[in-house]
Design a protein around this nucleic acid. Sequence first.
RNA 1: GGCGACGUACCCAAGUGGCUAAGGGGGAGGUCUGCAAAACCUUUAUGCAGCGGUUCAAAUCCGCUCGUCGCCUCCA
Length: 483
Amino acid sequence: MRIYNTLTAKKEDFVPVKPGAVRMYSCGITAYDHCHIGHARSAIVFDVMRRYIRYKGYAITYIRNFTDIDDKIINRGHQEGMAWDAVAKKYIDEYYRDMDMLGVGRADVEPRATEYIAQMIHIVKGLVEKGFAYESEGSVYFEVAKFGDYGKLSKRDPDDMMAGARIEVNEKKKSPMDFALWKASKEGEPAWDSPWGPGRPGWHIECSAMSLEHLGETFDIHGGGADLIFPHHENEIAQSEAFTGKPFVKYWVHNGFITVDKEKMSKSLGNFFTIKEILGKFDSEAIRFFLLSTHYRSPIEFSDEQLKEAEASIDRYYTTVLRVRDFLGLDHAKEKASSEEKALEEVLSGFITGFREAMDDDFNTALAIGGIFELIRVLNKYLDGKPSGRHSMELVTRSRELLKEVGAVLNIFARTPEEWYKALMSVKHIGLSEADILLKIDQRQQARANRDWAAADTLRKELDSQGIVLEDKKDGTTWRVKV
RNA sequence: GGCGACGUACCCAAGUGGCUAAGGGGGAGGUCUGCAAAACCUUUAUGCAGCGGUUCAAAUCCGCUCGUCGCCUCCA
Protein backbone atom coordinates (compact mmCIF):
# COMPACT_ATOMS: atom_id res chain seq x y z
CA MET A 1 0.00 0.00 0.00
CA ARG A 2 1.30 3.42 -0.91
CA ILE A 3 0.24 6.64 0.76
CA TYR A 4 1.04 10.20 -0.18
CA ASN A 5 2.85 11.78 2.75
CA THR A 6 2.58 15.55 3.06
CA LEU A 7 5.76 15.53 5.13
CA THR A 8 7.92 14.14 2.33
CA ALA A 9 5.66 15.30 -0.53
CA LYS A 10 5.87 11.80 -2.02
CA LYS A 11 3.91 8.60 -2.22
CA GLU A 12 5.56 6.18 0.16
CA ASP A 13 5.19 2.49 0.89
CA PHE A 14 3.08 2.13 3.97
CA VAL A 15 4.92 0.35 6.77
CA PRO A 16 3.28 0.73 10.17
CA VAL A 17 5.43 1.49 13.19
CA LYS A 18 4.18 -1.70 14.85
CA PRO A 19 3.77 -4.56 12.36
CA GLY A 20 0.16 -5.49 11.77
CA ALA A 21 -1.30 -2.61 13.74
CA VAL A 22 -2.19 0.85 12.50
CA ARG A 23 -2.78 3.88 14.67
CA MET A 24 -4.60 6.72 12.96
CA TYR A 25 -5.76 10.13 14.15
CA SER A 26 -7.81 12.63 12.27
CA CYS A 27 -8.79 16.11 13.31
CA GLY A 28 -12.49 16.38 13.83
CA ILE A 29 -14.47 19.54 14.18
CA THR A 30 -14.59 22.56 16.39
CA ALA A 31 -18.17 22.36 17.57
CA TYR A 32 -19.46 25.89 17.06
CA ASP A 33 -21.51 25.76 13.86
CA HIS A 34 -23.31 23.51 11.39
CA CYS A 35 -21.08 21.19 9.40
CA HIS A 36 -20.73 21.84 5.71
CA ILE A 37 -19.95 19.51 2.85
CA GLY A 38 -16.22 20.11 3.35
CA HIS A 39 -16.42 18.55 6.79
CA ALA A 40 -18.29 15.68 5.20
CA ARG A 41 -15.51 15.13 2.70
CA SER A 42 -12.85 14.92 5.34
CA ALA A 43 -14.91 12.59 7.52
CA ILE A 44 -15.81 10.31 4.60
CA VAL A 45 -12.28 10.17 3.22
CA PHE A 46 -10.83 9.08 6.55
CA ASP A 47 -13.74 6.73 7.14
CA VAL A 48 -12.91 4.96 3.88
CA MET A 49 -9.19 4.85 4.68
CA ARG A 50 -10.01 3.29 7.99
CA ARG A 51 -12.33 0.72 6.42
CA TYR A 52 -9.79 -0.17 3.76
CA ILE A 53 -6.92 -0.52 6.23
CA ARG A 54 -9.12 -2.84 8.25
CA TYR A 55 -10.10 -4.73 5.08
CA LYS A 56 -6.38 -5.22 4.41
CA GLY A 57 -6.19 -7.10 7.68
CA TYR A 58 -4.56 -4.58 9.97
CA ALA A 59 -5.77 -4.03 13.49
CA ILE A 60 -6.53 -0.35 13.36
CA THR A 61 -7.16 2.10 16.15
CA TYR A 62 -8.81 5.22 14.86
CA ILE A 63 -9.19 8.41 16.87
CA ARG A 64 -11.16 11.46 15.88
CA ASN A 65 -11.44 14.33 18.30
CA PHE A 66 -13.89 17.10 19.07
CA THR A 67 -12.69 20.57 19.95
CA ASP A 68 -15.25 21.54 22.54
CA ILE A 69 -13.50 24.58 24.02
CA ASP A 70 -12.33 27.41 21.84
CA ASP A 71 -12.81 31.16 21.32
CA LYS A 72 -15.23 30.51 18.47
CA ILE A 73 -17.39 28.38 20.73
CA ILE A 74 -17.36 31.02 23.44
CA ASN A 75 -18.29 33.72 20.94
CA ARG A 76 -21.09 31.63 19.51
CA GLY A 77 -22.41 31.16 23.01
CA HIS A 78 -22.58 34.93 23.46
CA GLN A 79 -24.38 35.32 20.13
CA GLU A 80 -26.93 32.63 20.81
CA GLY A 81 -27.30 33.37 24.48
CA MET A 82 -26.11 29.92 25.40
CA ALA A 83 -23.45 28.56 27.68
CA TRP A 84 -20.29 27.62 25.78
CA ASP A 85 -20.60 23.97 26.75
CA ALA A 86 -24.21 23.89 25.57
CA VAL A 87 -23.02 25.23 22.21
CA ALA A 88 -20.45 22.45 21.94
CA LYS A 89 -23.00 19.82 22.86
CA LYS A 90 -25.54 21.12 20.35
CA TYR A 91 -23.14 21.00 17.44
CA ILE A 92 -21.59 17.68 18.42
CA ASP A 93 -25.09 16.16 18.45
CA GLU A 94 -25.72 17.65 15.06
CA TYR A 95 -22.40 16.34 13.79
CA TYR A 96 -23.40 12.82 14.77
CA ARG A 97 -26.73 13.16 13.01
CA ASP A 98 -25.01 14.30 9.81
CA MET A 99 -22.31 11.65 9.94
CA ASP A 100 -24.72 8.83 10.67
CA MET A 101 -26.68 9.85 7.58
CA LEU A 102 -23.51 9.85 5.50
CA GLY A 103 -22.44 6.40 6.64
CA VAL A 104 -19.41 7.66 8.54
CA GLY A 105 -18.61 5.20 11.30
CA ARG A 106 -17.75 6.18 14.84
CA ALA A 107 -14.07 6.30 15.65
CA ASP A 108 -12.69 3.91 18.26
CA VAL A 109 -12.11 6.82 20.58
CA GLU A 110 -13.70 10.26 20.17
CA PRO A 111 -12.00 12.38 22.79
CA ARG A 112 -13.08 15.89 23.66
CA ALA A 113 -10.55 18.55 24.53
CA THR A 114 -12.12 19.41 27.88
CA GLU A 115 -11.64 15.84 29.08
CA TYR A 116 -7.88 16.13 28.68
CA ILE A 117 -7.05 19.37 30.47
CA ALA A 118 -4.75 17.62 32.95
CA GLN A 119 -2.77 15.92 30.19
CA MET A 120 -2.44 19.20 28.32
CA ILE A 121 -1.17 21.01 31.39
CA HIS A 122 1.32 18.20 31.88
CA ILE A 123 2.71 18.69 28.38
CA VAL A 124 2.76 22.48 28.62
CA LYS A 125 4.62 22.23 31.92
CA GLY A 126 7.10 19.86 30.35
CA LEU A 127 7.68 22.20 27.44
CA VAL A 128 8.33 25.10 29.80
CA GLU A 129 10.78 22.98 31.78
CA LYS A 130 12.60 21.91 28.63
CA GLY A 131 12.88 25.52 27.53
CA PHE A 132 10.60 25.28 24.49
CA ALA A 133 7.88 27.42 26.02
CA TYR A 134 7.57 30.46 28.23
CA GLU A 135 4.93 31.98 30.45
CA SER A 136 3.75 35.50 29.86
CA GLU A 137 0.97 37.20 31.86
CA GLY A 138 -0.75 33.93 32.69
CA SER A 139 -0.48 32.53 29.16
CA VAL A 140 2.10 30.09 27.88
CA TYR A 141 3.58 30.30 24.39
CA PHE A 142 5.61 27.87 22.36
CA GLU A 143 8.83 29.49 21.22
CA VAL A 144 9.08 28.56 17.58
CA ALA A 145 12.70 29.66 17.27
CA LYS A 146 13.69 26.90 19.73
CA PHE A 147 12.36 24.15 17.51
CA GLY A 148 14.75 23.70 14.61
CA ASP A 149 12.44 21.61 12.45
CA TYR A 150 9.67 24.18 12.46
CA GLY A 151 8.16 24.43 8.97
CA LYS A 152 9.07 20.92 7.84
CA LEU A 153 5.47 19.90 7.17
CA SER A 154 4.22 23.04 5.47
CA LYS A 155 7.56 23.59 3.73
CA ARG A 156 8.07 27.06 5.07
CA ASP A 157 11.01 28.91 6.39
CA PRO A 158 10.15 30.73 9.63
CA ASP A 159 12.39 33.60 8.55
CA ASP A 160 10.36 34.12 5.37
CA MET A 161 7.18 34.08 7.36
CA MET A 162 8.50 36.69 9.72
CA ALA A 163 8.95 38.91 6.68
CA GLY A 164 5.27 38.61 5.84
CA ALA A 165 3.14 41.32 7.36
CA ARG A 166 0.10 39.18 8.02
CA ILE A 167 1.07 37.90 11.41
CA GLU A 168 -0.58 39.69 14.27
CA VAL A 169 1.61 41.55 16.69
CA ASN A 170 1.10 40.52 20.26
CA GLU A 171 2.99 42.25 23.06
CA LYS A 172 2.88 39.13 25.17
CA LYS A 173 4.82 37.04 22.68
CA LYS A 174 8.57 37.07 22.16
CA SER A 175 8.00 36.55 18.47
CA PRO A 176 4.87 36.86 16.34
CA MET A 177 5.49 33.27 15.21
CA ASP A 178 5.05 31.89 18.70
CA PHE A 179 1.71 30.27 19.38
CA ALA A 180 -0.39 29.82 22.49
CA LEU A 181 -0.26 26.54 24.38
CA TRP A 182 -2.29 27.91 27.25
CA LYS A 183 -4.40 31.06 27.33
CA ALA A 184 -5.13 33.08 30.44
CA SER A 185 -8.88 33.43 30.88
CA LYS A 186 -10.48 36.74 31.68
CA GLU A 187 -13.20 37.15 34.25
CA GLY A 188 -16.34 35.35 33.12
CA GLU A 189 -14.60 33.16 30.56
CA PRO A 190 -14.39 29.41 30.98
CA ALA A 191 -11.29 28.58 32.99
CA TRP A 192 -9.37 25.68 34.49
CA ASP A 193 -6.78 25.95 37.24
CA SER A 194 -3.21 25.69 36.09
CA PRO A 195 0.30 26.48 37.34
CA TRP A 196 -0.07 29.78 35.45
CA GLY A 197 -3.42 30.73 36.91
CA PRO A 198 -6.91 30.22 35.54
CA GLY A 199 -6.95 29.60 31.81
CA ARG A 200 -7.89 27.38 28.92
CA PRO A 201 -5.94 25.39 26.38
CA GLY A 202 -4.68 26.74 23.08
CA TRP A 203 -6.11 25.08 20.00
CA HIS A 204 -3.20 22.87 18.95
CA ILE A 205 -2.24 21.30 22.26
CA GLU A 206 -5.36 19.13 22.55
CA CYS A 207 -4.43 16.96 19.58
CA SER A 208 -0.96 16.39 20.97
CA ALA A 209 -2.35 15.44 24.36
CA MET A 210 -5.11 13.17 23.10
CA SER A 211 -3.00 11.37 20.53
CA LEU A 212 -0.22 10.86 23.06
CA GLU A 213 -2.70 9.39 25.52
CA HIS A 214 -4.36 7.00 23.08
CA LEU A 215 -1.78 6.30 20.40
CA GLY A 216 1.56 6.90 22.06
CA GLU A 217 4.52 9.09 21.20
CA THR A 218 4.86 7.98 17.58
CA PHE A 219 1.96 6.77 15.51
CA ASP A 220 1.22 5.99 11.90
CA ILE A 221 -1.28 8.29 10.23
CA HIS A 222 -2.47 11.76 11.08
CA GLY A 223 -4.95 13.43 8.82
CA GLY A 224 -7.26 16.31 8.23
CA GLY A 225 -8.18 18.90 5.65
CA ALA A 226 -5.34 20.51 3.73
CA ASP A 227 -6.05 23.78 5.48
CA LEU A 228 -4.85 22.26 8.73
CA ILE A 229 -1.31 21.76 7.45
CA PHE A 230 -0.46 25.22 8.60
CA PRO A 231 -0.51 26.24 11.32
CA HIS A 232 -2.37 23.49 13.16
CA HIS A 233 -0.39 20.40 12.18
CA GLU A 234 2.90 22.24 12.00
CA ASN A 235 2.36 23.36 15.57
CA GLU A 236 1.32 19.90 16.70
CA ILE A 237 4.59 18.53 15.38
CA ALA A 238 6.57 21.24 17.13
CA GLN A 239 5.00 20.78 20.55
CA SER A 240 4.79 16.98 20.41
CA GLU A 241 8.31 16.38 19.17
CA ALA A 242 9.76 18.99 21.49
CA PHE A 243 8.00 17.29 24.38
CA THR A 244 8.75 13.63 23.64
CA GLY A 245 11.95 13.99 21.66
CA LYS A 246 10.54 11.38 19.26
CA PRO A 247 9.05 11.60 15.78
CA PHE A 248 5.38 12.41 16.16
CA VAL A 249 3.73 10.97 13.06
CA LYS A 250 4.98 8.77 10.24
CA TYR A 251 2.45 9.62 7.51
CA TRP A 252 0.64 12.94 7.23
CA VAL A 253 -2.42 12.72 5.04
CA HIS A 254 -4.52 15.68 3.88
CA ASN A 255 -7.67 15.85 1.84
CA GLY A 256 -8.34 18.52 -0.78
CA PHE A 257 -10.98 21.21 -0.67
CA ILE A 258 -14.45 21.48 -2.03
CA THR A 259 -14.86 24.43 -4.34
CA VAL A 260 -17.83 26.45 -5.49
CA ASP A 261 -17.32 28.35 -8.74
CA LYS A 262 -13.70 27.20 -8.52
CA GLU A 263 -13.18 28.91 -5.18
CA LYS A 264 -12.55 27.16 -1.92
CA MET A 265 -15.69 26.65 0.10
CA SER A 266 -15.22 28.44 3.37
CA LYS A 267 -16.97 30.13 6.20
CA SER A 268 -15.38 33.49 5.49
CA LEU A 269 -16.40 33.54 1.83
CA GLY A 270 -19.87 32.45 2.81
CA ASN A 271 -20.04 30.09 -0.16
CA PHE A 272 -20.68 26.97 1.85
CA PHE A 273 -23.52 24.48 1.87
CA THR A 274 -24.35 22.66 5.07
CA ILE A 275 -24.74 18.92 5.07
CA LYS A 276 -28.27 19.32 6.36
CA GLU A 277 -29.16 21.60 3.47
CA ILE A 278 -27.83 19.19 0.86
CA LEU A 279 -29.53 16.23 2.51
CA GLY A 280 -32.81 18.02 1.86
CA LYS A 281 -32.20 17.80 -1.87
CA PHE A 282 -30.12 14.69 -2.37
CA ASP A 283 -29.84 11.28 -0.87
CA SER A 284 -26.91 10.72 1.48
CA GLU A 285 -25.55 7.93 -0.68
CA ALA A 286 -25.34 10.32 -3.63
CA ILE A 287 -23.29 12.71 -1.51
CA ARG A 288 -20.96 9.97 -0.37
CA PHE A 289 -20.58 8.60 -3.89
CA PHE A 290 -19.93 12.09 -5.26
CA LEU A 291 -17.18 12.69 -2.72
CA LEU A 292 -15.53 9.35 -3.47
CA SER A 293 -15.69 9.71 -7.24
CA THR A 294 -12.71 12.06 -7.17
CA HIS A 295 -9.32 11.29 -5.63
CA TYR A 296 -9.22 12.59 -2.05
CA ARG A 297 -6.35 15.02 -2.64
CA SER A 298 -7.91 16.73 -5.67
CA PRO A 299 -10.29 19.64 -5.37
CA ILE A 300 -13.94 18.83 -6.06
CA GLU A 301 -16.28 21.35 -7.58
CA PHE A 302 -19.59 21.18 -5.78
CA SER A 303 -22.81 21.60 -7.75
CA ASP A 304 -26.29 20.16 -8.05
CA GLU A 305 -25.34 18.94 -11.49
CA GLN A 306 -22.60 16.79 -9.99
CA LEU A 307 -24.87 15.38 -7.34
CA LYS A 308 -27.40 14.47 -10.02
CA GLU A 309 -24.74 12.58 -11.92
CA ALA A 310 -23.84 10.71 -8.77
CA GLU A 311 -27.49 9.87 -8.33
CA ALA A 312 -27.70 8.55 -11.89
CA SER A 313 -24.65 6.35 -11.31
CA ILE A 314 -26.06 4.88 -8.16
CA ASP A 315 -29.37 4.29 -9.89
CA ARG A 316 -27.57 2.37 -12.58
CA TYR A 317 -26.02 0.21 -9.91
CA TYR A 318 -29.28 -0.60 -8.15
CA THR A 319 -31.05 -1.26 -11.44
CA THR A 320 -28.50 -3.97 -12.09
CA VAL A 321 -28.92 -5.34 -8.57
CA LEU A 322 -32.61 -5.67 -9.25
CA ARG A 323 -31.90 -7.39 -12.52
CA VAL A 324 -29.57 -9.83 -10.80
CA ARG A 325 -32.22 -10.64 -8.25
CA ASP A 326 -34.80 -11.25 -10.96
CA PHE A 327 -32.35 -13.50 -12.73
CA LEU A 328 -31.57 -15.59 -9.67
CA GLY A 329 -35.28 -16.03 -9.04
CA LEU A 330 -35.85 -17.63 -12.44
CA ASP A 331 -36.19 -21.33 -13.08
CA HIS A 332 -32.71 -22.63 -13.80
CA ALA A 333 -33.48 -26.18 -14.83
CA LYS A 334 -32.06 -25.70 -18.29
CA GLU A 335 -28.33 -25.24 -18.77
CA LYS A 336 -27.61 -22.45 -21.25
CA ALA A 337 -24.48 -20.38 -21.57
CA SER A 338 -24.45 -16.68 -22.34
CA SER A 339 -22.24 -15.63 -25.21
CA GLU A 340 -20.58 -13.23 -22.77
CA GLU A 341 -19.57 -15.93 -20.33
CA LYS A 342 -15.84 -15.64 -21.03
CA ALA A 343 -15.90 -11.86 -20.70
CA LEU A 344 -17.63 -12.02 -17.34
CA GLU A 345 -15.32 -14.72 -16.02
CA GLU A 346 -12.36 -12.65 -17.04
CA VAL A 347 -13.57 -9.49 -15.34
CA LEU A 348 -14.51 -11.43 -12.21
CA SER A 349 -11.11 -13.07 -11.94
CA GLY A 350 -9.32 -9.72 -11.87
CA PHE A 351 -11.91 -7.75 -9.99
CA ILE A 352 -10.67 -7.89 -6.41
CA THR A 353 -7.07 -7.52 -7.50
CA GLY A 354 -8.04 -4.44 -9.46
CA PHE A 355 -9.89 -3.01 -6.52
CA ARG A 356 -6.97 -3.61 -4.19
CA GLU A 357 -4.49 -2.14 -6.63
CA ALA A 358 -6.60 0.99 -6.93
CA MET A 359 -7.00 1.39 -3.20
CA ASP A 360 -3.39 0.46 -2.50
CA ASP A 361 -2.36 3.36 -4.69
CA ASP A 362 -3.04 6.15 -2.22
CA PHE A 363 -6.71 5.22 -1.81
CA ASN A 364 -7.75 5.76 -5.41
CA THR A 365 -11.49 5.45 -4.86
CA ALA A 366 -12.26 6.99 -8.25
CA LEU A 367 -10.43 4.19 -10.02
CA ALA A 368 -12.02 1.62 -7.72
CA ILE A 369 -15.47 2.91 -8.64
CA GLY A 370 -14.51 2.72 -12.31
CA GLY A 371 -13.78 -0.98 -11.77
CA ILE A 372 -17.18 -1.49 -10.18
CA PHE A 373 -18.95 -0.04 -13.19
CA GLU A 374 -16.88 -2.08 -15.56
CA LEU A 375 -18.19 -5.18 -13.84
CA ILE A 376 -21.70 -3.77 -13.93
CA ARG A 377 -21.49 -3.31 -17.68
CA VAL A 378 -20.12 -6.78 -18.37
CA LEU A 379 -22.63 -8.33 -16.00
CA ASN A 380 -25.51 -6.60 -17.80
CA LYS A 381 -24.16 -7.78 -21.10
CA TYR A 382 -23.90 -11.29 -19.75
CA LEU A 383 -27.51 -11.19 -18.60
CA ASP A 384 -28.59 -9.84 -21.99
CA GLY A 385 -27.31 -13.15 -23.38
CA LYS A 386 -30.15 -14.87 -21.46
CA PRO A 387 -28.11 -17.53 -19.74
CA SER A 388 -29.63 -20.22 -17.57
CA GLY A 389 -28.56 -23.06 -15.31
CA ARG A 390 -26.21 -23.78 -12.47
CA HIS A 391 -23.06 -22.24 -13.88
CA SER A 392 -24.77 -18.98 -14.77
CA MET A 393 -26.19 -18.76 -11.26
CA GLU A 394 -22.73 -19.27 -9.82
CA LEU A 395 -21.26 -16.54 -11.96
CA VAL A 396 -24.00 -14.07 -11.16
CA THR A 397 -23.93 -14.90 -7.46
CA ARG A 398 -20.19 -14.45 -7.44
CA SER A 399 -20.57 -11.07 -9.15
CA ARG A 400 -23.06 -10.01 -6.55
CA GLU A 401 -20.80 -11.06 -3.70
CA LEU A 402 -17.72 -9.32 -5.05
CA LEU A 403 -19.67 -6.11 -5.58
CA LYS A 404 -20.92 -6.37 -2.05
CA GLU A 405 -17.42 -6.91 -0.73
CA VAL A 406 -15.94 -3.79 -2.28
CA GLY A 407 -19.09 -1.77 -1.65
CA ALA A 408 -18.68 -2.51 2.05
CA VAL A 409 -15.20 -0.99 2.05
CA LEU A 410 -16.44 2.22 0.46
CA ASN A 411 -19.67 1.91 2.43
CA ILE A 412 -21.80 2.53 -0.62
CA PHE A 413 -24.24 0.26 -2.49
CA ALA A 414 -25.23 -1.43 0.75
CA ARG A 415 -28.98 -0.97 0.41
CA THR A 416 -31.68 -2.88 -1.41
CA PRO A 417 -33.06 -1.34 -4.59
CA GLU A 418 -36.33 -0.82 -2.73
CA GLU A 419 -34.57 1.17 -0.02
CA TRP A 420 -32.89 3.22 -2.72
CA TYR A 421 -36.16 4.02 -4.50
CA LYS A 422 -37.84 4.81 -1.23
CA ALA A 423 -35.04 7.23 -0.40
CA LEU A 424 -35.38 8.80 -3.83
CA MET A 425 -39.12 9.20 -3.38
CA SER A 426 -38.57 11.10 -0.19
CA VAL A 427 -35.74 13.29 -1.42
CA LYS A 428 -37.49 14.10 -4.69
CA HIS A 429 -40.76 14.76 -2.93
CA ILE A 430 -42.80 12.32 -4.98
CA GLY A 431 -46.36 13.06 -4.00
CA LEU A 432 -47.52 9.49 -4.49
CA SER A 433 -47.62 6.51 -2.20
CA GLU A 434 -46.64 3.07 -3.36
CA ALA A 435 -50.34 2.13 -3.20
CA ASP A 436 -51.20 5.03 -5.54
CA ILE A 437 -48.63 3.81 -8.00
CA LEU A 438 -49.72 0.20 -7.83
CA LEU A 439 -53.30 1.25 -8.43
CA LYS A 440 -52.32 3.13 -11.59
CA ILE A 441 -50.25 0.19 -12.75
CA ASP A 442 -53.25 -2.05 -12.24
CA GLN A 443 -55.52 0.27 -14.21
CA ARG A 444 -52.97 0.40 -16.97
CA GLN A 445 -52.68 -3.37 -17.07
CA GLN A 446 -56.41 -3.60 -17.66
CA ALA A 447 -56.20 -1.07 -20.45
CA ARG A 448 -53.36 -3.03 -21.98
CA ALA A 449 -55.33 -6.26 -21.69
CA ASN A 450 -58.05 -4.54 -23.71
CA ARG A 451 -55.38 -3.36 -26.15
CA ASP A 452 -56.43 0.20 -25.33
CA TRP A 453 -52.94 1.58 -25.92
CA ALA A 454 -54.05 5.19 -25.75
CA ALA A 455 -55.41 4.80 -22.22
CA ALA A 456 -52.35 2.80 -21.17
CA ASP A 457 -49.99 5.47 -22.48
CA THR A 458 -51.94 8.20 -20.77
CA LEU A 459 -51.45 6.46 -17.45
CA ARG A 460 -47.78 5.97 -18.16
CA LYS A 461 -47.35 9.64 -18.98
CA GLU A 462 -49.30 10.67 -15.94
CA LEU A 463 -46.95 8.77 -13.66
CA ASP A 464 -43.93 9.93 -15.58
CA SER A 465 -44.87 13.53 -15.04
CA GLN A 466 -44.93 12.79 -11.32
CA GLY A 467 -41.45 11.28 -11.44
CA ILE A 468 -42.35 7.61 -11.71
CA VAL A 469 -41.14 5.46 -14.61
CA LEU A 470 -42.76 2.17 -15.48
CA GLU A 471 -41.02 -0.87 -16.88
CA ASP A 472 -43.03 -3.59 -18.57
CA LYS A 473 -41.52 -7.02 -18.12
CA LYS A 474 -42.70 -10.48 -19.04
CA ASP A 475 -44.23 -11.20 -15.67
CA GLY A 476 -45.59 -7.76 -14.85
CA THR A 477 -44.85 -4.08 -14.58
CA THR A 478 -42.43 -2.54 -12.11
CA TRP A 479 -41.87 1.09 -11.23
CA ARG A 480 -38.86 3.23 -10.52
CA VAL A 481 -38.25 6.76 -9.43
CA LYS A 482 -36.94 8.86 -12.30
CA VAL A 483 -33.51 10.29 -11.50
C1' G B 1 6.21 38.83 -2.50
C1' G B 2 7.34 33.42 -0.70
C1' C B 3 5.78 28.28 -1.26
C1' G B 4 2.63 24.73 -3.73
C1' A B 5 -1.10 22.33 -6.80
C1' C B 6 -3.73 21.82 -11.17
C1' G B 7 -5.10 22.34 -16.75
C1' U B 8 -7.34 14.92 -20.17
C1' A B 9 -13.86 14.60 -24.90
C1' C B 10 -19.88 18.50 -24.53
C1' C B 11 -19.61 17.91 -18.65
C1' C B 12 -17.36 15.13 -14.46
C1' A B 13 -13.10 12.04 -13.89
C1' A B 14 -8.94 7.84 -13.70
C1' G B 15 -4.39 7.32 -15.99
C1' U B 16 2.31 10.19 -14.39
C1' G B 17 7.29 6.62 -19.81
C1' G B 18 5.64 1.60 -23.88
C1' C B 19 -0.93 -2.67 -25.47
C1' U B 20 -7.24 0.16 -28.67
C1' A B 21 -6.23 7.17 -23.17
C1' A B 22 -10.61 3.58 -17.42
C1' G B 23 -15.43 4.77 -15.57
C1' G B 24 -19.90 7.95 -15.02
C1' G B 25 -23.26 11.75 -17.09
C1' G B 26 -25.04 14.07 -21.64
C1' G B 27 -25.79 14.08 -27.27
C1' A B 28 -26.62 11.30 -31.98
C1' G B 29 -27.85 6.61 -34.36
C1' G B 30 -29.31 1.47 -33.61
C1' U B 31 -31.09 -3.55 -31.26
C1' C B 32 -35.19 -4.90 -28.05
C1' U B 33 -40.56 -3.16 -27.04
C1' G B 34 -47.83 -2.45 -28.70
C1' C B 35 -45.42 2.28 -27.20
C1' A B 36 -41.83 2.98 -23.56
C1' A B 37 -38.16 2.13 -19.82
C1' A B 38 -33.94 -0.63 -18.57
C1' A B 39 -29.96 -3.09 -20.81
C1' C B 40 -26.67 -3.60 -24.80
C1' C B 41 -24.12 -1.92 -29.49
C1' U B 42 -22.04 2.10 -32.61
C1' U B 43 -20.60 7.05 -32.33
C1' U B 44 -18.88 11.77 -29.64
C1' A B 45 -10.01 12.89 -27.68
C1' U B 46 -4.90 10.16 -34.20
C1' G B 47 -5.09 13.26 -29.02
C1' C B 48 -4.21 14.95 -23.09
C1' A B 49 -3.58 24.12 -22.22
C1' G B 50 0.43 26.04 -25.84
C1' C B 51 5.47 25.90 -27.56
C1' G B 52 10.22 23.73 -27.36
C1' G B 53 13.49 19.72 -25.48
C1' U B 54 15.15 14.61 -23.56
C1' U B 55 14.07 9.48 -25.31
C1' C B 56 13.77 3.97 -29.78
C1' A B 57 9.10 5.59 -27.22
C1' A B 58 5.74 11.19 -23.42
C1' A B 59 -0.73 12.99 -21.52
C1' U B 60 3.14 10.97 -18.30
C1' C B 61 10.18 13.48 -17.63
C1' C B 62 12.67 18.69 -18.31
C1' G B 63 12.25 24.04 -19.67
C1' C B 64 9.45 28.22 -20.98
C1' U B 65 4.61 30.56 -21.86
C1' C B 66 -0.59 31.07 -20.89
C1' G B 67 -4.67 30.03 -17.60
C1' U B 68 -7.03 28.50 -12.90
C1' C B 69 -6.73 27.68 -7.82
C1' G B 70 -4.69 27.00 -2.84
C1' C B 71 -1.51 28.03 1.59
C1' C B 72 1.27 32.02 4.03
C1' U B 73 -4.92 34.61 9.14
C1' C B 74 -9.73 31.05 11.84
C1' C B 75 -10.81 27.29 8.30
C1' A B 76 -12.23 20.14 6.70
